[in-house]
């Protein structure tokens, strides 16, 4: 359990936070890791702030309590920074991965965030350019991989190709892989 990584996803209903949490879990399976992924249930409305959680570990995960001290917090929508206390419970040397066109230093200053590693990437722009829709979850996953190294980028891309293959066109699949890879490359950290 020492190598347990806990991620909290902040998004707005419809941005794919739950799908992202799920995608990470499924990709973890491909790498023979253990995982849990769960949304926070409540009244779900398009645009309302929501949370989802992922745990990843090389050993079986036995705990079933809530994720209260995440190692990584992912913010899919920058407008949440002024609405939700996104650093709540984040461990001291934890990482904050944010979808924004600002640099980590600018985010830090604008929101008075001290400490933590801050990673930013313009995932919405990447999503529009690669997938054609402003659903930032796949590019944000690329930034998470860059920030944490919890999984191999190429293996996650492989998983997207194989699991999306059943439901989506080749164009959508290629767009998602491109978004993942571009965000991995473009993510800036401080």
């Amino acid at each position: 359990m020492e190598d347990l990584t806990e991620i909290r996803w902040h998004g707005r209903g419809g941005q794919g936070a739950v799908t992202a949490a799920k995608l990470v879990a499924e990709a973890a399976l491909k790498q023979d890791k253990y995982f849990q992924a769960s949304p926070e249930y409540g009244p779900e409305r398009m645009g309302a702030p929501i949370q989802a959680f992922t745990r990843i570990c090389p050993e079986p995960i036995l705990i079933h309590c809530a994720v209260t001290n995440p190692d990584i917090v992912v913010v899919l929508d920058p407008t949440l920074l002024s609405v939700v206390n996104v650093t709540d419970g984040l461990v001291e040397n934890g990482a904050l991965v944010i979808n924004t066109d600002m640099s980590p230093a600018e985010v830090r200053q604008a929101n008075n965030i001290e400490g933590y590693k801050i990673v930013t990437v313009d995932a919405s722009k990447i999503a529009v350019e690669s997938i054609g829709r402003a659903i930032p979850n796949t590019p944000m996953l690329g930034a998470v991989l860059k920030a944490t190294g919890i999984m191999d980028l190429e293996k996650v891309a492989e998983h997207i190709r194989s699991s999306f293959g059943k439901k989506f066109s080749q164009e959508i699949i290629d767009g998602n892989v491109e978004a993942l890879t571009r965000a991995y490359q473009e993510a800036r950290s401080e």
Partner: peptide, 12 residues
């Protein structure tokens, strides 16, 4: 089985 904790969480 425990609601949400087990029922709605993805597990291996």
């Amino acid at each position: 089985l425990d609601g949400f904790i087990i029922s709605h969480a993805i597990d291996r």
